[in-house]
Write a protein that binds this DNA or RNA. Structure first.
Ligand code: FES
Ligand code: FES
Lengths: 151, 151
DNA sequence: AGAAAAAAAGAGTCTTTTATCTTTATTTAA
DNA sequence: TTAAATAAAGATAAAAGACTCTTTTTTTCT
């Protein structure tokens, strides 16, 4: 559905939100190591998010990436749009050139509702919601609980 | 969700099922042109399906691909398994190494149900169901209605 | 001012997916 | 028994996605 890259983006933002108590700014290396994401690749992704204003960054010593006023209220759909674009919600399941409810493919009816549901969920969920889940111990950013228990 | 290749496979099989009245066998060129799928690529896909026994083929003049006794009762999940494998239903939405409900990611709860729904739909839907839809004029294999109206 | 830290930018590589082209094998029919 | 039709197989290529490495720019601290 969404790309691996987009997953990295969301996890990166949530990480920054979770860790803002410890220190406001976090270097790319720290984030990448904690989340087990290739450093330079994550760097590029976070830069995209900075350009979109979803997070912020400062260069130089003691610089790093950090959340801003907007971050926690950012709906996930905005992150998806920034990384993957909204085109992913407009593709036909059977790979025809485009999805159309006027000229539907034989799987359209079955999956169009499901796709809208996913879209709506991405619209409604905000970064803050994910952060809350993790703070409550209901979910985890990394597969290894190392990080989860460390919080 | 499912790959473009898998969509080609499903459309190919349904095409053969629809057209079996006209003539039982259909050459790869005819199928590819009608469905607007790259000829040789579709050839490989259909060959995979033949190996799985989902459809059949005969070489030589007047040969081609054709449906067999099993075809119409084949559940879509079998096609998906043949082409994409079932791994696509076991991936974490956020791109973590694996999906786990014991150690869920913050999107797991939101989307796990949706994913199961998709899986169940693929289990329940058979090729014959898609054929029926098209025969009833409720859906179309190609975007251009040329083919749909031609039936 | 100069050194060091860190993000930003750019170029390049690897992998997977998607697609094309070419050759071979099989079958039919004249 | 030869020619033609056609699927099968194999090799290659193009495109996109994922990832790496190197250099540049900005900032801070001494
Ligand atoms: S037309 Fe295929 S999913 Fe809408
Ligand atoms: S753990 Fe992420 S989707 Fe299940």
């Amino acid at each position: 559905m969404i790309s691996k890259t987009c997953g990295y983006a969301i996890r990166g933002i949530v990480f920054l939100s979770l860790e803002q108590n410890k220190s406001t700014k976090h270097g790319i290396l720290e984030i990448a190591e904690d989340l087990q994401i290739p450093q330079h690749f994550l760097g590029k992704i976070l830069q995209d998010l900075v350009r979109r204003g979803i997070i912020s960054s400062i260069k130089g010593p003691h610089g790093g990436f950090f959340v801003n006023a907007k971050t926690k209220d950012t709906p996930l759909i905005e992150v998806v749009e920034a990384i993957d674009g909204l085109g992913i919600f407009k593709k036909c399941f059977l790979g025809r050139e485009e999805c159309s409810s006027i000229n539907p493919c034989p799987l359209h009816d079955e999956f169009d509702g499901c796709r809208s549901a996913i879209f709506k969920t991405f619209e409604n969920l905000k970064i803050a919601d994910l952060v809350t889940k993790i703070e409550n111990g209901d979910s985890y950013l990394s597969l290894s609980n190392d990080f989860a228990t460390e919080i």
